[in-house]
Design a protein around this nucleic acid. Sequence first.
DNA 1: CTGAAAGCGCTAACAT
DNA 2: ATGTTAGCGCTTTCAG
Lengths: 340, 340
Amino acid sequence: MNSKKTTINDVARLSGVSKRTISRVINNSAKVGKATRERIQKIIDELNYSPNPQARGLAARRSYLLGMIYDNPDALYINDVQRGVLSVCRELGYELVVHPCDMKADTLIDEAVNFAGRSKLDGVIILPPVSENNDLAGALGKANVNYVRLASIALDSAEHVVISNERSAAAAMADYLVSLGHRRIGYIAGPQGMKSTRERLEGFCDALEKHGCKLDGDLLAIGAYSFESGIECTRTLLANPEPPTAIFASNDEMAVGVINAAQDMGMNVPNDLSVAGFDDSILASRIIPSLTTIRRPVKQMARLAATKLIASIDGRTDDAQTSILLVPELVKRNSTRSIL
Amino acid sequence: MNSKKTTINDVARLSGVSKRTISRVINNSAKVGKATRERIQKIIDELNYSPNPQARGLAARRSYLLGMIYDNPDALYINDVQRGVLSVCRELGYELVVHPCDMKADTLIDEAVNFAGRSKLDGVIILPPVSENNDLAGALGKANVNYVRLASIALDSAEHVVISNERSAAAAMADYLVSLGHRRIGYIAGPQGMKSTRERLEGFCDALEKHGCKLDGDLLAIGAYSFESGIECTRTLLANPEPPTAIFASNDEMAVGVINAAQDMGMNVPNDLSVAGFDDSILASRIIPSLTTIRRPVKQMARLAATKLIASIDGRTDDAQTSILLVPELVKRNSTRSIL
DNA sequence: CTGAAAGCGCTAACAT
DNA sequence: ATGTTAGCGCTTTCAG
């Protein structure tokens, strides 16, 4: 890069103090006289000096590198999280290293731990659905790597998780559909075993029951969070002798599948069938009709995760343990209508 | 991390040679006896030793870190490029650091150069449309940072660019639409000044002319690669006294806008109007009707870019200069039909 | 083909 | 509040 990068020694020489003091200024150590600090800071600015992260890392056993582990089909979500995390990184002098992975690979855990170790990452942020893997979290913990998981429930201690309450979000959707007059509502769940599947489903059912209308067993279909599974489940649901007037698919991909399938069967959405999704992916606003859905506070979660992670790294335990429950928002669009 | 990580010294001690030799083995230096090398390699494997990247970087002025600079609304594209680049990184022992940015910010160049410098990146990959910024490339070059740009034309020397031929792709679309019997074809271009805008438009026009049907000036609209601009341009285009029978929007976002606008105006796609896009974004396969579009060889481009970049870093100039012209592919779906 | 010694740029005890 | 002295783990002259 620069033929002769300015080093801490240059700064030390020019300011007439030892490098130790410069180091203290760089690292915001408290034990520097205000005057000295300012004088040195000025010289640093003039020289446009910035410390070599590798040397710093080598000496302090720190890399100033955060990792992000994910296997998520939703590119927009990933992208949003990356940007959110980075907004914090930039303030605090970290960089973000990405690690997409294959959730189903049996090397998943080894590779993740190895990733963190080999790159000497200061910590990692894990996105759903990988974040639900407790074995991974355990392995990371054992390997002594800091981590924060993005999740829908408290599947770890406060310092290791950032939660958005999908249960109440699904409940809000139930409330909304009921308010539109729907009573027979089909539900397309995610794959069994996933926490988000359960949170969303239970939130929905509970809310429904509060309105006195239980979810009919015939109206519950198990999907796979994929477009195709949305189509398939819709066929099943609509084949019911007493078909639903609305279908809540527990993610947008499936909801878009519902719309496709319904139109294929000659139905009009929302006139013949109301459809709702979950995610507010890019699809939701582009599909015709635009999709009523739920928007998770992705950027906030990402920022919070990064903030917590760095707090852990710095050993600021109480900051790392703040537990804020973020609440998703209901986005009303054109795929749902009142049948009252 | 590990309370006591094994170091090169451990390996040296156990194998009874000096660290210099271990270092040679690690770095595949030629000057090591075959027997010694194998013996040492075995010990390395047994110890599960991997060199500390920071120490290595500090000593060798290398970080084994690649950066990715982009400001692209298409999350899927970014994600694909990330995965492609990473597939190469993993083979060659690099990690990827991401740097989304604001193309319009006047700090763009400073921040990018700073990003590379501060993190001591070995090189960066720049995605369109940021990649079209020659000032950025110039600044990077001057700062002595290796870079490779993803582009639609040869806007830099071979070692600095990976090209997909969008001109011929647009031509292929023209051929296809003409083959379906369309003669009055509307074209929605990208923003003026962008290379891809020009490549796609010229490719399209040239091909059209080969078929003896020039693009009517009234049927050319200037969009902004956004959904909204697609809608707006469609309104203009369809207000024409002799409206087009097909519209080729030069990206999917706009094409989806076209479909929305057309349906709003009571038209059926593809019965009353054929629509085509460019990108094969996730939208293309989900929208109703599914969108005929063009798929760039994104992963290949990404892999090629990473390969070139690392070749440059390693000083393998000829490898860095291979120039392969990648060709996008036409994806036929349901938004276009024959009017013959 | 291999080894000894001198750093790379920074932080961390331990003084003072 | 500031300076001194060792390293962190690796690569690289330069000898042999």
